[in-house]
Simulated scan of single mutants.
Amino acid sequence: MYSISIITVGMNHLAYLKSLLHSLYIENHPKCSFEMIYIDNCSKDDSVKFIRENYPEVKIIENKQPLGFGENNNKGVFASTGKYIAIINPDIVIQKDSLDILLDYAEQHLQAGIIVPQLLNPDHSIQYSVRGFISIKTLTARILSKGKDNVNNKTVNEYLCKDLDFQKTQFVDWAIGAAFFMHRDTFAKLGGFDLDYFLYMEDEDMCLRCWKNNMPVIYCPQSTMIHNHLRGSSKLGKKAWLHIQSIITFFRKHGIKIKNSKEHTMSL
């Protein structure tokens, strides 16, 4: 059994995959044992050909028709054997020791549910990847500010946790699903990603279900990764509509008043 199974889903992400795979297998190869499962979601950019020719150790699953984010990741986990699961988006660049640090933390904190690294922008500035649970107030503020992060809006700033001590290991409500780390048993207990979401909100939903199962979501800034954040729903279009549908699904499942991580009495 491998220590970590890395699950990556791609759809015409060849340029990003080149950087991810180089960082993982060449530049910042983890010390621990790992396998990578790549699920190709009907790419037309020769992603599969490139991986087969340059990284034959990667296990590839090719979809015959496009599937949603959660279903693809579930598919990858089912095909994996690692003790721990790392959901890693194709637009991530692994940094030195980042996966080993997450593994060490998980082994020392068995009560942890989902552990997330510190995500950085390509210029190495802090990315606002940690969030508060969404509310009607937050949603309204995000719509009025057109989903932009750099706005002078108290509600948006609180939602993006801009006052967070980014160097402190701590409980958080949730984090964007570009890089999730968890024990295989945690994934199984949660039943994987909820397939009622095709795209968007699966990450927030999974973190909330983690909290509801008394498994905390923990931000571990000692582990850092670069995230070339692809924000497909920031403009009006099909993806924006999918995001809205997912938000409606989220509220229908969990209600509009959600307990946040600060209300829990667990200790790190």
Rank of each mutant, 00 (worst) to 15 (best):
R209S: 06
M225N: 04
M225D: 02
W211E: 00
F251Q: 06
H229E: 06
C210S: 15
R231G: 11
C220H: 07
C220V: 12
K212V: 04
M215V: 03
H243E: 14
N228E: 08
K253S: 06
W211D: 00
M215N: 03
I218L: 05
C207D: 06
H243I: 04
K212A: 08
Y219V: 11
Q245G: 04
H254F: 13
H229R: 15
H229M: 08
H254M: 05
L208F: 12
N213W: 08
H254W: 08
H229F: 13
S246Q: 01
C207R: 00
M206N: 00
G232I: 11
K235C: 15
P221V: 08
M206H: 05
I226D: 01
T224R: 10
Q245W: 05
S223G: 08
L230E: 07
I247E: 01
G232C: 07
L208N: 00
E204K: 05
T224M: 07
K212F: 09
R209C: 08
I218K: 00
M225L: 09
L242I: 05
W241K: 15
H227C: 13
C220F: 11
H254V: 10
R209F: 14
I226W: 00
S233W: 02
Q245L: 09
P216I: 03
G232R: 04
S233Q: 12
C220E: 12
R252W: 13
T224G: 09
H243Q: 12
M215E: 01
Y219W: 03
Q245C: 12
M215Q: 02
H229V: 10
K235N: 13
D205Y: 04
C210I: 02
E204P: 02
H254T: 07
N228D: 15
L236R: 13
F251D: 02
S234G: 10
S233C: 12
L242N: 03
S223R: 04
W241Y: 14
Q245Y: 05
M206W: 02
K239P: 02
G232H: 12
M225F: 15
N213I: 09
N214P: 05
S223A: 10
R231L: 12
R252S: 13
D205H: 12
F251H: 04
H229Q: 11
N214V: 06
S233R: 07
P216T: 04
R231M: 15
L236M: 15
T249W: 07
F251C: 05
P221W: 01
W211I: 02
I248N: 08
M215D: 00
W241C: 10
F250N: 00
C207Q: 04
